[in-house]
C-alpha cells in the first residue's frame, strides 16, 4: 500500500493526541470590536452592575439596538455617541460575536 495521507491531516491528528488541550481562541475582528464594549458592559457582556448586560442577547436584538442608538430613534445617554463609531458591517460583527458566546 502506497497511500500517504496529506501532511495537514497527519499533523492535525498528531495534535489531537497530545493531552490537556483547550481551544486557542482565534482572535476575530468581531472579538476585537466587542472586547472594547466590556469595559462598561462587563467581560463577555456580563454586567455586574447598573449597566445593561449584552450576554445572552440575540444577534438581531443587538444589531437593532445599535442601529437605533446610532440613528437616534432609541434614546440613550452615551450609546448614541458610541454607536456612531461603527459601520453596519461592524455592528453585525459585534452582534454575531456576543450572540455566539
Amino acid at each position: 500500500m502506497q497511500y500517504k495521507p496529506p501532511l495537514q491531516i497527519f499533523i492535525f491528528l498528531s495534535l489531537i493526541h497530545v493531552g490537556n488541550f483547550s481551544l486557542a481562541a482565534g482572535i476575530t475582528a468581531g472579538a476585537m470590536l466587542s472586547n472594547s464594549c466590556s469595559a462598561c458592559h462587563g467581560t463577555d457582556g456580563k454586567s455586574p452592575g447598573a449597566i445593561p448586560g449584552i450576554y445572552g442577547k440575540s444577534a438581531d436584538f443587538i444589531s437593532q439596538a445599535l442601529t437605533d442608538f446610532r440613528n437616534g430613534s432609541r434614546k440613550s445617554t452615551v450609546m448614541g455617541r458610541h454607536a456612531k463609531g461603527y459601520t453596519d458591517e461592524e455592528i453585525k460583527l459585534i452582534a454575531d460575536y456576543f450572540s455566539s458566546l
Partner: peptide, 22 residues
Amino acid sequence: FRKLEARYAAGWYDSITFDTFG
C-alpha cells in the same frame, strides 16, 4: 439624564473593575 449618567458611572466602575481584576 444627569442622574442616569451618575448611575451608569457607578455601573461602569463595577464593570471595568470586573473586566480588569475579575
